[in-house]
């Protein structure tokens, strides 16, 4: 008889919970709706998921390090608006996008500075910047959408690879691969896990907290800006209210994926699965003609069940 090593298997099963959930959801939806399992539908869901996933990848680093970032949706809106605005003012594609992405990085680092040097609790610091940036976006856009005129830019979010695969999906997988490597294969990633697991022990081991937090929140800001640029491109315009509530979808994806909100435990693959779960759940409820009021109820229940199942003793 082969000896099963439960002490090592149990955490693995727990980790795979989100994968099992996704597979089950997939099977149920395939059976219940004939429109679900079609290439067109699946690819369109993937394209919708990509925006949330891009943000959630950055959020994973923040949460793993024991923090939270509520400003991601606001950064998405402002960076999208700035990118579109610069292009509308006649600046080139590269400069406009560079400015948008750079701004995202800097805004994220401002969050990091508030948290590390300012010693403000991450929830409060990013709640503040979220509100501030929402306001700035309204000021900048005067509340009206900024249309995208550059056809090349529009390809970024609206284009396809081989006339089939939406480009945002490509960006999602590229960023996923890069982030997964960053987390598992680099000293930076190791230090993220250490800070989330025990900040004091990490500091005493010589991990420099302030630069790390600047980098972690900076990464989150940068990926929010990437999402902002892609979304603006796909919608052909930058909306001042874009990305409202995206911070909560991103947090939900991270938590559904099995990453602990108290930090130090989790993985990036889980976040990808979590984002897909939310995306397919939305899609399935639409296909099944569930009213949008009930959709929210179902999403809330799913999140609660997932967290309860994942809860450790």
């Amino acid at each position: 008889m082969t000896q099963v090593n439960w002490s090592r298997l149990a955490p693995l099963l727990q980790r795979l919970g989100s994968v099992i959930g996704l597979v089950l959801l997939f099977i149920v939806l395939s059976v219940m709706s004939p429109d679900f399992l079609t290439t067109g539908n699946l690819l369109s869901v993937l394209r919708q998921v990509s925006i949330n996933a891009l943000i959630a990848f950055g959020m994973t680093f923040v949460i793993l390090a024991g923090g939270i970032d509520l400003s991601v949706g606001a950064i998405l809106a402002l960076t999208g608006a700035i990118t579109a605005g610069l292009m509308a003012a006649g600046h080139g594609l590269a400069l406009s996008m560079g400015a948008g992405l750079g701004l995202g990085l800097v805004l994220g680092m401002v969050n990091g500075a508030l948290v590390s040097w300012g010693k403000v609790a991450p929830f409060i610091a990013t709640l503040g910047t979220m509100t501030l940036l929402r306001g700035l976006t309204l000021v900048y856009t005067q509340g009206t959408p900024i249309p995208v005129t550059d056809a090349g830019f529009a390809l970024l979010g609206g284009g396809y690879l081989a006339h089939l695969l939406p480009l945002p999906v490509i960006w999602m997988f590229v960023v996923f691969a890069a982030c997964a490597f960053l987390l598992r294969g680099t000293v930076f990633g190791r230090h993220v896990m250490a800070i989330g697991g025990n900040e004091e022990a990490a500091r005493l081991s010589g991990v420099r907290l302030a630069p790390m937090k600047l980098a972690i929140y900076g990464l989150s800001g940068l990926l929010s800006a990437v999402a902002g640029v892609v979304l603006t491109s796909r919608l052909y315009s930058a909306q001042s209210t874009a990305g409202s509530g995206y911070e909560l979808d991103a947090i939900a994806a991270v938590v559904l994926g099995g990453t602990s909100l108290s930090g130090g435990r989790g993985w990036l693959f889980g976040t990808l699965i979590g984002a897909l779960l939310i995306g397919f759940l939305n899609n399935g409820l639409n296909l099944l003609d569930v009213s949008s009021f009930y959709q929210q109820v179902v999403k809330g229940v799913v999140i609660l069940i997932a967290v309860l199942l994942d809860r450790r003793q």
Binding site: V187, R190, M193, A194, G197, N198, E200, A201, A202, L204, S205, G206, V207, G264, R265
Partner: peptide, 19 residues
């Protein structure tokens, strides 16, 4: 409280000061 990151492996703890 200050010496170990309990959720990291032995290997990861040992190399924390210099990976």
């Amino acid at each position: 409280g200050q010496g170990l990151v309990l959720d990291l492996s032995l290997r990861e703890n040992v190399s924390l000061p210099r990976v």
